[in-house]
């Protein structure tokens, strides 16, 4: 059984050749990137791209396949990031011990919230997730134990340290993030063929019919939301050691949740490659455009561009860029 699961996750045989080639190119690109591009900024953008791939792949489960507009990914990222940071700062616990705990906290939060929130549907659910994230953010801003609005800074270590994941060279972070993304992609590859994947798509299409086919809608949604929490939690743990600093505005902010959702929507919600395509477009655009405009004292234009993209995508092609590609392919 386990071997079959692994085989399912590793087999991309049912995909068209073009997708497989694209995937291999993506892997090669990520592997050789740090050796070709030496610029510090470019490498940082690349790592951010990988983190957002991870976030997006996770959100895609509940938002894309599940059709539930959860706008609170940031709180799961934050839960895990804060757990890891606190454990390291206060008790000096190694990163590799903190991370499972951080992910656990993020997942438990998802479970408890999901259990209540999934009684709601559609817009009620979406607004409730926003409400909850805002409550969490305000709580963390006013909670001194976790550093309040000042946030938490991790102690710097003299030498590169594998136990606490502290390195000077970004290469280590690059490959670590890459491994996380690969795990996420393999999981997605298993997921889309699994019972859970089918049941979730059935729910998105028609809840009434799904229920009549013996699917426990509430439980499937809660389960998926927890898995989404795991992805966000892994991202949060990585974020903490990568930046060495977190505060309620960087990891708990609504803007982060928005970014994740918009990115996935633009790339193509409910498809395997959608979140990666979205991140590939938005993250470099965001960082380079943001840096360029910020240098000229213009703020906000970058977000206006994403907003335009999302409005156009929602109005004309809700399946995003991947939906356009698929349509063109089916026509041929």
């Amino acid at each position: 059984m386990q071997i079959r699961t692994l085989k399912d996750a590793l087999s991309f045989g049912d995909l068209p050749a073009s997708e497989r080639i694209g995937f291999i190119l993506f892997i090669i690109f990520c592997l050789i990137f740090p050796w070709i591009i030496k610029g510090g900024f470019a490498q940082a953008v690349m790592i951010q791209f990988l983190i957002f791939c991870l976030y997006g792949l996770g959100w895609n489960l509940i938002g894309g396949y599940g059709g539930q507009v959860a706008l609170g990914q940031a709180k799961n990222v934050g839960m895990s990031a804060y757990t890891v940071a606190l454990l390291i700062v206060r008790w000096d616990i190694p990163f590799w011990v903190c991370t499972p705990l951080g992910v656990l906290v993020a997942t438990v939060e998802s479970f408890v919230l999901g259990y209540f929130l999934f009684r709601l549907r559609g817009h009620y659910f979406a607004i409730a997730t926003i409400a909850v994230s805002l409550v969490w953010q305000q709580l963390f801003i006013n909670w001194n134990f976790v550093g309040g609005a000042r946030g938490i800074e991790l102690p710097l270590r003299e030498t590169p340290n594998f136990i606490y994941m502290q390195f000077v060279s970004p290469i280590y972070y690059h490959y670590f993030a890459f491994v996380l993304v690969m795990i996420a992609i393999l999981y997605m590859n298993w997921f889309r063929k699994s019972r859970l994947g089918y049941q979730l798509r059935a729910i998105t299409a028609n809840e009434e019919v799904a229920e009549s086919l013996g699917i426990n809608i509430h439980w499937v949604k809660v389960k998926t939301y927890c898995i989404t929490g795991v992805f966000a939690g892994m991202g949060g743990a990585f974020y903490t050691v990568y930046y060495n600093y977190i505060d309620p505005f960087s990891v708990m902010h609504l803007e982060l949740s928005i970014m994740i959702a918009l990115m996935t929507m633009i790339g193509g919600a409910g498809s395997m490659w959608g979140p990666i395509i979205g991140a590939m477009i938005l993250i470099p655009l965001d960082r380079y455009l943001g840096a360029w405009l910020g240098g000229r004292g213009i703020i906000g234009v970058d977000f206006m561009i994403y907003a335009m993209m999302v409005m156009i995508i929602s109005a004309y092609e809700p399946k995003g860029i991947w939906g356009i590609i698929e349509k063109a392919r089916r026509k041929r």
Partner: peptide
């Protein structure tokens, strides 16, 4: 679909 309606006005 619902998700497009929500994210559209969100945009």
């Amino acid at each position: 679909p619902m998700i497009a309606q929500l994210l559209g006005t969100f945009g």
